[in-house]
Nucleic acid binder design. Sequence first.
RNA 1: CGGGGCGUAGCGCAGCUCGGUAGCGCGCGUCGUUCGGGACGACGAGGUCCCGGGUUCAAAUCCCGGCGCCCCGACCA
Length: 497
Amino acid sequence: MPTVTEQTHAPEALDLPEREPEYVEFIRKKSDDFAGWYNDVVRKAELADYTPVRGCMVIRPYGYALWENIQAALDRMIKDTGHSNMYFPLLIPESLLLKEAEHVEGFAPEVAWVTHGGSEKLAERLAIRPTSETIIGTLYKKWIRSHRDLPVLINQWANVMRWEMRTRLFLRTAEFLWQEGHTFHATRDEAAEEVAKMLECYRVLAEEWLAIPVVKGKKTEEEKFPGADYTVSIEAVMSDGKALQSGTSHHLGQNFTRAYDINYTDRENTRQFPFSTSWGLSTRIIGALIMCHGDDAGLIMPPRVAPIQVVIVPIYRGDEQKVTVMRAVAEVRDALKPVARVHVDERDEKPGYKYNDWELRGVPLRIELGPRDVEAGHAVVVDRLDREKHQVPLDGIADRIEVMLTEFQARLFGRALRTRESFSVEVSTREELLAAFAEGRNSFAHGPWCGDSACELDIKEATRGVTIRVVTEEEPTGACAACGKPATALAYWARAY
RNA sequence: CGGGGCGUAGCGCAGCUCGGUAGCGCGCGUCGUUCGGGACGACGAGGUCCCGGGUUCAAAUCCCGGCGCCCCGACCA
């Protein structure tokens, strides 16, 4: 300890820890206020913002670049599994929407209507699509004639609108972007195969691209899509312990094809109704990414979809150093281009400002390059997950960065998996199930279930909102954890977004 | 749809109780000094105080009526 006469700093500085803060807080703390933290991250990382339009957000360039990367990955999978993209109208005549009873009932409360064209009142009002089964079915009625026309495998990337009571950026907005796949098949089994195949695509997207571990399973009667025979989904656990449905795939049976009179002639020359499916994944998945991976410093982007994977922050003083440093920066940038999405931050700001800024935006790797580094022939690479600083030789830096990005992706997934495990609890009695959610606690509970809707609603009531996210094929052991009746499935209970 | 909160500079807010020149912080612009974890100084630009009525010599402030947004519940990808 320095004596008083040796002090070179303000006296109070001596009482503070030696260590510099690792980051500065510009956003609310995740542990204090999860919802506030989420909002701050979305807006300050410039993913999205509110607009003058009720419940509708603007997706800003950084957020849209992320969505485009997600889209590109999923679009590839959709095409590789034999589907073609097309585009249907935004507006759906009311009469079309009304044909499938359950479907209407499910969506009616949240449909927005167009009632006028110019100054003229329309004879029939038009719904702004909340989903497109009805318009697509109506058109395919014209095009499906023979068993030779099947299967129909199509997808569209579109916006849809649902007049939600309460909205949250990305998680629930009145207008959102998604893809909706729609297929028609000759047999129930073939449609079932399709439903499973597309859910698997969603799992791959979530786990392998977004580093979000998910549970695949079937929705209960309470939670399934209006008009579906059954719905399957991928469920992810956020870092606050709440679950988020992140992609769904529906077996529509013949419900829609009967309602819309879509039929074909089979080999035996008899009239048949095809079986249809639909499946969708929306910009909501970005909300999952944020809540799954983010920390107190902001976002953490999975490298495979990160708009910027590596950011280079040049450090220099004066023009002479600038020339030397920028030459090295250009070399590193060019070396990295073939292996990574790289960005050089040339803004006229101090390095510390840039560090915080890029951490908030979740860029996986940051390269700091200053005169000392150029001199020594290395770069300082800082990892967004643990903020460890690594000295990496400039010679062969691209190979090293490529490996680091791959490792980052795997570590991020591992971390998310551990988070989910920390909320996971196996329950076999009602007491255990209720305890898992006591006093507003969040858990991801799994245990045997009887399959009864009344039982599910009873738990929802008793816990103020806990629902069965999915049930899986796994063989249940023991009696229903909720009510003690014989179990028919293994269920996952959680509070959900 | 129930409950709560808020509309004042780009953003965050104070001022309103008790009417009298519209403020603070951040950000923004110019210049200078700075630059290895959000620097500092000087000067400067920026306002239908959500809208409409009313009271008053005078309204951001008081009264009446709208509108909008956010948060918490019920419903939902």
